[in-house]
Design a protein around this nucleic acid. Structure first.
Lengths: 355, 355
DNA sequence: AATGGTGATGTGCGCGGAAACATAAGGTAG
DNA sequence: CTACCTTATGTTTCCGCGCACATCACCATT
């Protein structure tokens, strides 16, 4: 076994009969290199697998980068609070590599606030951007601007393929609906009514919630031999008729299961279900928010599908940082596994450092 | 917002009024420092959050470390083949940090082979060891030896707390059995017979398989309102009576579900179940081996619990490498999440880079 | 008093790459 | 022909740390 002592720029220079400066210029196409020298260097390069020492590169350059993070205000929403946790963790992790993360929080229910904070990001001229572009039209405009400026951005949670982000991080929502359906189906041995609830204060992400519903419906159409009716409800917890409508639904003797498409909605549904006292209704929802975990432990919620907002963010930052420091291109889209959380595996998820 | 320009050793030296050499000696408790100087330096250290620049440290030292990996021969077993994948990946990942990984494969069914390969590792005097110590007694002897030598070792898959590894990476097997039971229970609406199968060519890890069974049984005792009989079987696929026994089990009209405690056994059980043609028997097993995945896709297997051998190894190497290079102590035990794999979330797991 | 030992402290080099800087050759305009 | 610019190329410095080595003060031994 030969020891492939890592090739250095110095080695290439020696082999090509030029100086390290020239090799450096060739490697970074900085020009100012004669045809002759370029030939010699590329010839050597082709024969040798040169992999620059990233450690040395980072140390030398000693640049510092500013990344702007544009997410909904974490103080008013537990889901986005988890994203923010990811940011805090990433800040600590990347500080010593000269990555500085600046936070821009916008109001989850106010499109104008998104645009305003987006403007602020623009004026700050960061070296990279991580964002949850939950308002489609506004985000479209904003990121076309960033594209023109050549500032790289990574999107998470919600994709906007039209603006061609450096990378998108999230989940396959359609498939996520199918997983929900599968879990639901697994526990049922007779037909009946299934409810798909979109409980949200706002309708901005209705398109995405609908994806989950479509997957949920498709699975049942495709797989189930039993007869199920699937009804969907768009509810806002602020609505006055919310309580009435919900209890009406729970009164239906045919009701067998509830699938909630939002993380915050999951615990709302759970609280109603618990108060109503009805047993044997399956409840499947999203995400490891504290309230959800309590209902999972007490058995009101059967399954949670984990979207892992914290890790989405931390991977997003990591992609940006690697791109800025090491010029390493991240995957165009990174779809997270659709993790299934139950009463019994919950602790193992909480305990593992990854979450 | 003040910019906390990263503190360097030089800064500490300046603030404490000593030279960088002295600071260095204090930081690494190398001694040869006067009480006076030590006071001054520690005083500064307490006021300042010094975090050494790992980049510079690695670059400068430019040491190379040899890690020995002691695992069962991956060519004869798909489970250990996945572990080996993790090793291959880790080798590439850590090469540029000067980490050299040497492989030592032993025969999964031969204790002497384990001891022999262990001896070889010992003679090679590596800087660190990653091992799957599946033969308890032999491993006990071996690692006491390494402990005496002061060579750090990380264990995975199977723990031997008696030898105090630098870190153990694996899963809570008891809880894993509970998860299996929970999933089983979720799909059943009437009592009957449940079988726990330990299908293994060998009995070496019987203790660990038993942990899973204990968890499985406890869950049902604790949670189920229906009447279940749980029977356990120790089977070896090489055994002549294997086929007969298995079909006898499947003929039992009371049989409602099968829980297989081993990854290789899972597909064996699945093949018998499929051939027998009996429907509505739940099958739950372990790990994303190719054969298992096929049976999961075709619906013979309902759930797989993922032990993630590949990631266990890659995390193990990462812990060792960080310890050797950066002196960063890994957690004493790192228990992986008990991931639940189904037909519908399978692709999301295969697609995500983590697995 | 000269020598040597010891412990405390400071200095300087090297790691690999990036980039500023220095040098040398060649060409052009006045 | 000189002054000056351009382009190709080589040389040096810097990044932060670890470590080998140099230095120095102090004390003991002969």
């Amino acid at each position: 076994m030969s020891i492939p002592k890592n090739v250095r720029i110095k080695d290439i220079a020696r082999l090509a009969g030029v100086s390290v400066g020239t090799v450096d210029r060739v490697l970074h196409n900085r020009g100012r290199v004669s045809e002759d020298a370029l030939q010699k260097v590329t010839a050597v390069m082709e024969q040798i697998d040169y992999r620059p020492n990233l450690i040395a590169r980072t140390l030398g350059s000693n640049k510092s980068y500013r990344i702007a993070a544009l997410i909904p205000d974490p103080t008013v929403d537990p889901y986005w609070a988890q994203s923010n946790q990811g940011l805090i963790q990433a800040t600590a992790e990347w500080a010593q590599y000269g990555i500085d993360i600046n936070l821009y929080f916008f109001d989850l229910f106010d499109k104008e606030s998104f645009t305003k904070k987006g403007q602020e990001v623009f004026e700050a001229k960061p070296d990279g951007i991580l964002a949850a572009p939950i308002f489609f039209d506004e985000a479209l405009l904003l990121f076309k601007l960033f594209k023109k400026q050549g500032i790289p951005y990574v999107l998470f949670n919600t994709n906007i393929p039209e603006v061609n982000p450096l990378s998108f991080i999230g989940q396959n929502l359609f498939q996520s609906g199918r997983v929900g359906a599968e879990l639901m189906h697994f526990g049922l041995h007779q037909g009946g009514l299934l409810a798909v609830l979109h409980i949200d204060e706002d309708i901005h992400n209705s398109v995405h919630l609908l994806e989950k519903e479509k997957g949920f419906r498709e699975y049942f159409k495709e797989k189930s031999k039993l007869a199920f009716t699937i009804q969907d409800f768009n509810l806002s917890p602020n609505d006055t008729s919310f309580k009435k409508n919900f209890n009406l639904l729970l009164d239906d003797t045919q009701l067998k299961g509830i699938f909630v498409s939002t993380s915050n909605g999951t615990s709302v549904a759970a609280s109603y279900l618990e108060n109503h006292g009805k047993k044997n209704i399956r409840l499947i929802g999203y995400d490891m928010l504290n309230e959800n975990l309590n209902y999972l432990k007490s058995g009101v919620i059967d399954f949670l599908i984990n979207q892992n907002p914290k890790r989405q963010v931390s991977v997003g930052i990591s992609h940006l940082a690697n791109y800025l420091i090491f010029k390493k291109r991240p995957p165009e889209t990174e779809l997270f596994p659709l993790e299934i959380i139950t009463q019994q595996n919950l602790d193992s998820y909480l305990g593992s450092g990854i979450h």
